[in-house]
Amino acid sequence: MNKNEGLFSKMKKGLTSTKEGFSKNIGNIFNSSGEINDDFYEQIEEALIVADVGMATTMLIIEKLKVNIKANKIKTTEQAKTELKNIIKEMLGQNDVEDNYPLVILFVGVNGVGKTTAIGKLASKFGEQGKKVVMAAGDTFRAAAAEQLTEWAQRSNASIVKHKEGADPAAVIYDAIQSFKAKGADVLLCDTAGRLHNKKNLMEELKKMERIIAKELPGANKEVYIVLDATTGQNAINQAKNFKDTVELNGIVLTKLDGTAKGGVVIAINKELMLPIKYIGVGEAIEDLEIFDPYLFVEALFE
């Protein structure tokens, strides 16, 4: 519980620290007159939009809320608030983190979302659990990406396989798998270069990596996570769709939740693509990656 509080306060700190100017203090909406009327719904709509939930999902949530308020004879905004949170929590479902080993996770996503950092933090997390971790420096495109991952490997006591810049990323993955097998390691974390989801040829490259993993580690538990930046708006839906069309996505890592962005777009992604949110990034330090908790996420959404 203590740990949870720590996480919650971290998120809350980010979420409430900018009250000036354009930002809205969403908490306010529930402290209004207490009557459930059009104003109230409009305020909820605003709050959800500002949290990047998106118009379509917002309308869906409000429809459900209206139905439930009627069915359950809800009279106060305080009760309505609880109902609203429940609706969203239910939409997000439960989060079960993979714990079958050997485990291979391929991380994909657009540029600058924090793939390399997420891998570094996750490696440390697995390391703490006594797992043996190997990293594959599959981003051979961005200058010094392998160096960045190497630093994370050192910090988290993981081993790393890397090639020269510009090398074939699939070859890096292949070599990392051989090293992973030889070491009898538990977790293989594969970094990839950031790529915009509308670049066909770069997306195809991911398929090759996925094939190699499938072929070389048939018995392993294979996961592909898309890393999404919480500051991203509705485009995150396109990102998730396009990556899902290319590779077998299993989950989302939502990064940068320590800012003022709330990452509400994952609700739509979760609903539309049935993609669970696995982890969230809440800070710069190595321990600042947490297992996603729908309860805390929804609470933070409205603080």
Binding site: E20, F22, V110, D229, T232, G233, N235, T260, V265
Partner: peptide, 14 residues
């Protein structure tokens, strides 16, 4: 980042 969502105003303003 051109893909930034609603939070862009908070960031830019600050």
């Amino acid at each position: 980042d051109a893909m930034t969502g609603q939070d862009a105003v908070n960031v830019a303003e600050k």
